[in-house]
């Protein structure tokens, strides 16, 4: 059996006036947590849908666990949580889950047993057994749990989550992170797409950044960060940057890019700039420094650097 969970080779998807995915090749190792990063409209969802054989590529090939993704039954090993979530509103929770599990090739009797376990695990049985309720009687949070159960009910070896954190409150987001790690421990492969770099940096073994339908870079998170160099400064200022300091942070002889968060700054220095001299200048300018540290750039910084501000629309690559 192949060591690769997913092998995408030279995949192209064209629409009428634009190319959604351009000659994309990706190798996703078995058993890893893999982040597919990129701004909205970069082609993440299109790529995921092509993996799932929902839409067909114009060129190229995709295999899952070494077999073509068009092979009958191969998608039964995949669990998918789409970005746009929804269930049959008028159906009983248990029946929805049973239906989706049956579509993945699980026998009804097995599925029924697993549904009980999962409902228990997500505390959907208690004073009331929510399994017997209609989907539209559930709160939004409960519906998300049910949706997540439907993704994992057939115990897939490959789990694909499209923007899983969007719309989750902090508690559910934490629960999702725990679930992803547990899947990894059980040897499953998890792919998720996100534009929230912090999550990706904390959770992923490997990442791929795509923008405008093209791969910008990919590889292990550590390697990606290392290759980007250690020319970044993490700077915390008590009370923020006043006039002189603020000017210095934009000094083109030192600073190539400044990510200004009011009290916290992530600065990318020019390769030949002297970090010690820069620190002295800051003190001379009267900066109240709480932290000055040479760091590896965050994924967020790498993302901004490689994709460029033009590839990111406002609000699409927040720190959230």
């Amino acid at each position: 059996m192949s060591d690769l969970a997913i092998d995408i080779r030279n995949v192209v998807k064209r629409y009428d006036h634009h190319v959604a995915v351009r000659d994309l090749s990706l190798q996703i190792p078995r058993g890893s947590v893999y982040g597919l990063l990129g701004p909205n409209g970069a082609g993440k969802t299109t790529t995921i849908r092509m993996i799932l054989d929902i839409i067909l590529p114009d060129a190229g090939s995709i295999s899952i666990f070494g077999r073509p993704n068009t092979e009958p039954g191969i998608l039964n090993a995949v669990g998918y949580l789409p970005e746009e979530r929804g269930l049959y509103k008028k159906m009983q929770v248990r029946r929805v889950l049973l239906f989706l599990a049956e579509l993945k090739g699980i026998r009804p009797a097995d599925a029924s047993k697993r549904i009980d376990e999962w409902l228990e695990r997500f505390s959907l049985v208690g004073e009331r057994n929510w399994g017997d309720a209609r989907v539209d009687e559930l709160s939004r949070g409960m519906q998300q749990k049910v949706q997540f159960i439907s993704t994992l009910l057939h115990d897939p070896d490959l789990v694909i989550l499209d923007e899983p954190f969007s719309g989750l409150d902090p508690i559910n987001a934490q629960a999702l992170k725990d679930a992803v790690l547990e899947l990894k421990q059980r040897g499953k492969t998890v792919i998720f797409s996100t534009h929230v770099m912090d999550n990706a940096e904390k959770m992923c073994d490997s990442v791929c950044i795509i923008a405008r339908g093209e791969k910008v870079l990919d590889g292990g998170v550590a390697a990606v960060k290392k290759s980007a160099g250690a020319r970044n400064v993490a700077l915390s200022l008590a009370g923020g940057a006043h006039n002189g300091v603020s000017q210095l942070l934009r000094d083109p002889s030192f600073v190539r890019r400044c990510d200004d968060n009011n009290n916290y700054f992530e600065l990318e220095l020019y390769p030949n700039a002297d970090a010690q001299l820069f620190l002295r200048k800051l003190i001379e300018a009267g900066a109240n420094i709480e932290r000055f540290e040479l760091v590896q750039p965050s994924l967020h910084q790498i993302f901004l650097q490689r994709v460029g501000a033009s590839g990111v629309e406002t609000g699409m690559s927040g720190h959230g």
Partner: peptide, 17 residues
């Protein structure tokens, strides 16, 4: 229309042609 507007369609189509 219901499958489409409740967005359940995509999950279903990921399991069946």
């Amino acid at each position: 229309l219901e499958e489409k507007s409740t967005r359940v369609a995509e999950v279903v189509i990921s399991s069946i042609k």
